[in-house]
Design a protein around this nucleic acid. Structure first.
Length: 515
RNA sequence: GGUCCGUUCGUCUAACGGUUAGGACUCAAGAUUUUCAUUCUUGCAAUAGGGGUUCGAUUCCCCUACGGACUACCA
């Protein structure tokens, strides 16, 4: 039986999408596209308490920035609430699918796979505290459910009365005793667990009269005909429950295949990558900038100057490799090369240095014209406007040195403004008693040049210095100090030709400003 | 505490029983560049530990250690 590959990325809109989440979405997307299938974006907003305004829009925008476009699912600015040709399984927001789930929960009760429980949160807290006092852990399972107030222990009339009385009930899955649950994971292989170690998970919540993740997830995956579930490792412990749910619904033959991705770990120390690590170590953990309700801003890869292609590339390589030595892949190439077999089982520590390296590689692949356009925008923000031809020449000169477009300024500010601060260490090292007169001499010589091109300067200046018997190192470095302000930048001739004769002479004659 | 998952250079990883354990990032050294950077070359650096299985284990099995996730009317 081969069925169409349909995968879903199903985030919860409780905040900005973490880069680990983007990676999960990416792997889902690559897997689906490789197999000619569908990638679906579903919003799992069954936790009414933790809903964060703007989070859903953020998720959609982040995926779009990465070039991951869902075939079906929620869209920004477009209502996707009723089924259509493009969105046959709409709605894709679980809060809008509310009415669907109740009957499935009740079906489970009717068939003896689930039951009503009337314990209040306070009672459960008390039970947990009591167990803790004895050094035990309270587990809601086959050992206790008959002794608690549930539809299993209470008389039928009492149960019915409690249900109709109010909303203070939940539906729990009746996890069987001592049953070996055999599961398969596409990345990890066979996994077995004894059902006695599991608990009776809540499927239907009293607080908001909504299903929990477990129920909604299984029901929606079935209804949306999902063939493969690729999700984070944090879901592995609830895989047995999900297997049991598929069995209880009689869906074993259409149960999706599962693959659990290892977590992204913090660069130093231990544990999973968190927002704090980014703040502490100085790199973004979110694809796009995010401003929370308190006005705190978390940086984003986009705003930090990463190219989306570079971000996607580096993310793909955190836990996957093509088996060859090629490291630079476009989204299309990734799609072609991707397979779950080559996904690594262990967690990957994120390495910000390598992330920069990826961006540098992509920057070099960009055309100078394109980079010049980006740089032009950044210059405008600084109040500097120069013609694009000039900017293009500058970019051409410093492109190889940059990691981000924003580095261009630091690398070439002297191409746009006359230096006002000078690195005195350079002066100390190279400035001699006669340097000032030499520079006057050179200025006069340059002034006499008919054409002031790079080649012309390169052909005449060093020769002139040699003929005069001056110390090349000393003169050139002092010249650079005056032109640039410090010991950096492209060749002297390149700089002179670009800023022009007039500006060159001006800068040399400003030597009187040197402290 | 319990359940499950994991463990190759500092980091990301390759090697699906036989390799001088390979590559990339970082770092170091040298060459080029009359600056800085780039580039090139070279180098440093790993199979967690202990038992098996096998002619032979990074690779298969077990134990230990370590790490992680989960253990909510959150996802």
């Amino acid at each position: 039986m081969t069925r169409r590959t349909r995968v879903r990325f199903a985030p919860s809109p409780t905040g900005p999408l973490h880069m680990g989440g983007v990676r999960t979405a990416l792997y889902n997307y690559l897997y689906a596209k490789k197999r000619g299938g569908d990638f679906i974006l579903r919003i799992e907003d069954t936790d009414s308490q933790r809903f964060v305004p703007g989070a859903e829009e953020y998720i959609i925008e982040a995926l779009a920035w990465c070039g991951i476009s869902p075939d079906e699912g929620v869209e920004n600015g477009k209502p996707v609430e009723v089924p259509s040709a493009k969105h046959p399984y709409a709605p894709y927001r679980q809060s809008q699918r509310k009415s669907i789930y109740r009957s499935y929960a009740e079906e489970l009760v009717k068939n003896g796979y689930a039951y009503y429980a009337f314990d209040t949160p306070e009672e459960l807290d008390a039970a947990r505290s009591a167990a803790e006092l004895k050094g035990e852990v309270f587990t809601y399972n086959f050992k206790v459910r008959e002794n608690l107030r549930t539809s299993l222990s209470l008389p039928k009339e009492e149960t019915l009365r409690l249900i109709s009385d109010g909303s203070n009930w939940v539906i729990r899955f009746k996890m069987p005793e001592n049953q070996i649950i055999k599961m398969n994971d596409l990345i990890r292989g066979e996994i077995e667990v004894n059902s006695s170690t599991l608990d009776d998970k809540v499927l239907w919540k009293a607080v908001d009269q909504l299903p929990t993740y477990h129920l909604a997830n299984v029901v929606d995956d079935r209804l949306m005909e999902i063939s493969d579930v690729i999700r984070g490792e944090e879901w592995l412990p609830s895989l047995p429950l999900h297997y049991m749910l598929y069995e209880a619904f009689g869906w074993n033959d259409v149960r999706p295949a599962f693959a659990h991705l290892s977590l992204l770990l913090k660069p130093d120390g231990k544990g999973k990558l968190s927002k704090r690590d980014g703040d502490r170590l100085g790199f973004p953990v979110f694809p796009l900038e995010w401003k929370n309700s308190e006005g705190e801003i978390s940086r984003g890869y986009r705003e930090d100057g990463y190219f989306p292609e570079a971000f996607v590339n580096l993310l793909a390589f955190l836990g996957w490799n093509p088996g060859t030595e090629q490291e630079l892949f476009s989204l299309e190439q990734l799609t072609e090369a991707f397979s779950l077999e080559r996904v690594v089982k262990s967690g990957a520590k994120f390495n910000p240095e390598k992330a920069k390296w990826f961006n540098q590689e992509y920057l070099r692949m960009k055309s100078t014209d394109q980079l010049a356009l980006s740089f032009e925008n950044q210059l405008k923000e600084k109040g500097i406007s120069k013609d694009i031809g000039y900017i293009t020449k500058v970019v051409d000169l410093v492109k190889e040195r940059a990691v981000f477009v924003k580095d261009f300024w630091e690398l070439s500010d002297f191409m746009f403004i006359t230096p006002v601060n000078y690195d005195l260490k350079v002066k100390e090292k190279f400035w001699k008693d006669n340097t000032s007169e030499i520079l006057d001499d050179i200025a006069a010589m340059l002034e006499d040049m008919d054409q002031f091109s790079k080649d012309a300067v390169e052909a005449s200046l060093p020769v002139y210095i040699k003929e005069k018997g001056w110390q090349m190192g000393s003169v050139m470095n002092c010249l650079r100090l005056l032109l640039v302000g410090e010991s950096k930048g492209p060749g002297i001739a390149d700089i002179m030709a670009l800023i022009g004769k007039e500006e060159t002479l001006l800068r040399i004659r400003r030597k009187s400003l040197l402290p």
